[in-house]
């Protein structure tokens, strides 16, 4: 939960300090959509890694208890 909150806050703070004037890259304000999409995909991959990690940990615990 703390992690999610931290991610959200860091995202908002970066949005806040990005400069939006002059540069055509930011002018129409749609680059944020792309940034959000990429961030979501990356977060999804990380969640998947965490799932594998937890499953592995469970197996490790089970096997260590047996021996």
């Amino acid at each position: 939960m703390k992690i999610k909150l931290f991610l959200l806050l860091s995202f908002i703070s970066t949005l806040a300090c990005a400069q939006t004037q002059e540069n055509p890259f930011y002018a129409n304000g749609k680059i944020y959509v792309v940034v959000t999409v990429i961030s979501m995909i990356f977060t999804g991959i990380i969640l998947y890694l965490i799932t594998i990690d937890r499953r592995l940990r469970k197996t490790e615990r089970e096997l260590n208890e047996k021996h």
Partner: peptide, 12 residues
């Protein structure tokens, strides 16, 4: 990494 994705795309 998430910070670098966001900042890398949004920082001027």
């Amino acid at each position: 990494v998430l910070y670098s994705i966001i900042g890398g795309l949004l920082f001027v």
